[in-house]
Amino acid sequence: MNPDRFATEVRDTLREVASDSQASTDVIDRLIISAHAGPGHGHVVLLRRRRTWIAPMLAAAAVAVVALVATSIASNPAAHRRTPAGAGLSASPTAPASGSGLSTTSAKPTHVAVPVSTPTGTPTPTTPQPAACLTPAAALALVQEANNATEIQFQTQPGAYACQGGWAVVNYITTSTRNHSTVDLQAVNGTWVFGDRIAACGSSGYGSGAMPLPLQSLGCGN
């Protein structure tokens, strides 16, 4: 192959690869939003659609399902029936209500028995129930459902989503208004429901702008 033909092949190769790399509207929106957020907010968009995530996420989801089923089977149904109504966290968690507004400081769409603030106003985290973590996609879907909006997506900061030990925190953005919000989710009787840990902290430090590490924010930065 002579140099001219080789150069032609290089040109064709680059164009062929490039033709597969169009910027979708979603990508363009993320680029604009992240530029507005500025370099101080991190430069890596989390939770990109990586093909390499698919297998681990499916595996994690399968493990979570098996764990939930196993837990259900292992638990004594009779004991549940004997539990008096109203004791502890026995109130049935409900699915997030469609159409409810969600923001850092506004009411949550679903309230179940959750820890309350101490007299000083600083919430004291209770021991969360051990539970398999939500996948990021499932967490985002819950927030979208609660807001009745599909225009919600993760914020671009590192740590836009975190889940550990029965707690999860979602930092999200409403693309039409560019409002930044944070909500927490809690595993209650095997169901993920919205908690009020973040709301109890008020807006101090959790609104638009600097975002603490999500799981630390459950303790309101303490």
Binding site: V17, A18, L31, S34, R50
Partner: peptide, 22 residues
């Protein structure tokens, strides 16, 4: 497209472009 060609894959290309625009 240029960023993907430079970096060798889509994700890194998006990161590079985002970094540049930011």
């Amino acid at each position: 497209q240029a960023a993907v060609l430079l970096t060798g894959n889509r994700d890194r290309g998006e990161e590079l472009l985002q970094d540049t625009l930011t």
